[in-house]
Amino acid sequence: MMNITIKRIIIGICTTIILLTIYLLVPQVSNPSPSYETKLTHGTPVSDDIRAMLTPSIEPKRTRAIMVMQDGKVIYEYGPTDKIMNGHSTRKAMLSLLYGIAVDKKLINLDKTLSELDIDEYIPLTTQEKSATIRDLLMGKSSIYLPASGEHDNQITQRPKRESHKPGTYFFNNNFDANALGTIFIKETETSIGEFMEEYLAKPLGLQDFDSDNVIMGSPWFMPKKKTMHEQYYIYISTRDFARIGSMVANKGRWNGKQIISEDWIIKSTSSHSDLSNNHINYGRYDGFGYQWWTASDTNTIWTDGYGERFMIIDPDKRLTLVEQNFTGNSLLSSGLWLMNKNMDSGLSNLMKAHKTLAKNK
């Protein structure tokens, strides 16, 4: 009897270890091969000087992918640009593009208030907070200063006091706005973000590594979460697909001669609606904010960036798009190992130098 009991215990332990290993290793998202994918074309490669500038002289301590495009063509590529990665906060600019499509289709009215949309939170919103419109949220001006999923750093430490500003009057990089925009988008379009993005962005652009499963609502892991009505959405995207989207924006919403998103929306959403020079937070290289896009007036560029050192620089005047992504994990184990390593190295300074040189020469 004792031997049978010990045997059952050993089997139970082994089974638990196997299941735990599978749980730790299973990817959150797998690389799809969509039927609508089209290959990118290549233009005249960058000069040797710029190539040397962008190509790491020492192999990075983590997986890095870089792509530069001009006029819709690839002119520089480094690393596994087909590898899908968590886009982190770059999700916000991508959702802004989906809002543009939905607005053009008259599925969403940006002037609707949260009260009209019946949007609330577990910490109830005040009458003033509910007067914020969708447009206010897109501009980061909801003036709703509540804890939200995925926030970090100054989003927590420098959050203004509730009702210290009226909606539409003051910018704060607020994850409540970004996450509530996801909730509103799904509610108003009656479609998931992933399905909408696949149908109206991925297919027309011919993205190579995307399908609706690349968008995950809420954490896929059994991890402690903040109690909120507005889940964080995650968009996993390859560097080559990300660069293609940026190249479409650089060309005022057109791709291969077809208008994917209206030029009016691209101009409106990537123009600054906030002067950040007098903000209580120093946003560094950015001095403006559009509809979830950052702007830098000194270089006349449009930006989106994300945690873990990922960046997109768009120069509409030169029709240039420069992208860097760094892999932050695609399973509980790989994400955990990256967090433990705390390695935040990036090639941003070289990306910016390359843009300056290309913009001067092109």
Rank of each mutant, 00 (worst) to 15 (best):
D120C: 03
I123E: 15
T126I: 02
T126L: 05
R135I: 06
D136T: 03
L137R: 07
L138F: 10
K141M: 02
S142M: 04
S143D: 13
S143F: 10
L146M: 08
P147E: 14
A148R: 09
G150N: 09
G150S: 12
Q155P: 01
Q155C: 09
I156M: 01
Q158K: 14
K161W: 05
K161C: 00
R162I: 00
E163D: 15
K166S: 06
P167E: 11
P167F: 10
P167Y: 13
G168Q: 02
Y170H: 14
Y170E: 14
F171C: 12
F172T: 07
N173M: 08
N173F: 12
N174S: 14
N174Y: 03
F176N: 01
F176A: 00
A178W: 10
A178D: 06
A178S: 05
A180V: 15
A180C: 14
A180Q: 11
L181D: 01
G182I: 11
F185L: 08
K187Y: 05
T189I: 04
S192K: 03
S192F: 04
I193H: 03
G194D: 01
G194A: 12
E195W: 03
E195D: 12
F196D: 01
F196C: 01
M197S: 06
E198L: 05
E199N: 10
Y200D: 11
L201H: 05
L201Y: 05
P204K: 05
G206F: 12
L207V: 13
Q208A: 15
D211M: 11
S212V: 12
V215N: 03
V215L: 13
I216F: 05
I216C: 02
M217K: 14
G218F: 13
W221N: 14
F222A: 11
